[in-house]
């Protein structure tokens, strides 16, 4: 298990990285390396050149900007997970990060790396889809923004061009009165989830759900936004029956994979179970938040 040979380039700036990515046929970006380096060792990834971003300190930050939370692509999972700003403004992101692998992995793994890798079973792409995050990409032609909902379109496939770099992820701040929940079904602690549901529900002053953001990981070739379930919840008081009905809608929209860990039917059924649990738990938390606890 030793990697095939490759050239190594330590990027000195974002522009330098982009230039290197454009210069080689099969260049790959090295960020946290927690997925890439094992793939190199297995010789499943065989880039000609690795472009290492790790010295680009100006890509690592968490800051509030224009009513959004801006997180630099090279910010480590652990930094984001423990950032006070994130806990306060986008708690669903902090909750989800606690489920990413283990602390040692989160010490190295980066936010941008997880998004760019685009694994449909992973937490970050799914949370980004649920929360309508936007991604700032830079390429030789300049900068563009892509909504999370338009970014992921297949297994490990994203809108990122080979010579583009993801530089920043912008997260809308969740409104007051929002409760969050992450429900994951994993075989072992820290494993990729068989299915995971991410939910953020906002309760209005009259006790009615005013905003619902729900997504599912492990449910399709790309992270799935459960907008039909969200629509069913908005305007309701999220009774047990409401939660169950919304979760059934969520499950019906899934098209999960069949693999050695679980058949597709099982995953679909679990999407309904976890969906209901996540909705109920998020709603209970919204209740407590509104009660001023």
């Amino acid at each position: 298990m030793k990697a095939a040979a490759f050239d190594y380039h330590r990027a000195t700036s974002v522009d330098d990285a982009i230039q290197q990515l454009g210069a080689a046929d099969d260049a790959k970006v090295l960020a946290g390396g927690q997925s890439l380096v094992p793939l190199l060792a297995m010789r499943l990834a065989r880039p000609t050149v690795l472009v290492d971003l790790n010295r680009l300190a100006d890509l690592a930050y968490v800051r509030r900007e224009n009513g959004e939370l801006a997180i630099g692509a090279l910010t480590r999972h652990r930094t984001v997970e423990t950032a006070e700003l994130v806990r306060r403004d986008v708690p669903l992101l902090a909750d989800a990060l606690a489920h990413v692998g283990h602390v040692t992995i989160r010490n190295r793994g980066t936010i941008g790396g997880s998004i760019a890798h685009g694994d449909p079973a992973a937490e970050l792409p799914a949370v980004a889809v649920a929360l309508d995050a936007t991604f700032r990409l830079r390429g030789p032609g300049g900068e563009r923004s892509v909504a999370a909902g338009d970014f992921f379109f297949g297994y490990l496939m994203t809108a990122l061009e080979p010579d583009e770099l993801l530089t920043e992820i912008r997260w809308p701040v969740l409104p007051q009165g929002t409760g969050c929940a992450v429900e994951e079904l994993t075989r072992r602690n820290g494993d990729f989830a068989l299915v995971a549901v991410f939910a953020a529900l906002t309760m209005g002053a009259d006790g009615v759900c005013t905003q619902a953001r729900i997504s599912v990981a492990g449910a399709a070739a790309a992270p799935l936004r459960a907008d039909n379930a969200e629509q069913a919840l908005i305007g309701s008081r999220v009774s047990a029956a409401d939660a169950g009905a919304a979760a059934d809608r969520l499950a019906a929209a899934t098209d999960p994979p069949n693999d050695i860990h679980a058949p597709a039917d099982y995953r679909r059924e679990m999407a309904a179970v976890l969906g209901r649990r996540a909705i109920q738990r998020a709603w209970a938390q919204a209740n407590r938040t509104n009660a001023g606890e």
Partner: peptide, 16 residues
């Protein structure tokens, strides 16, 4: 064989 990594062959961790 479809289980050739520790991600597929599930030896229990301390949490299990």
């Amino acid at each position: 064989i479809q289980t050739t990594t520790f991600m597929d062959y599930l030896m229990p961790t301390a949490s299990e």
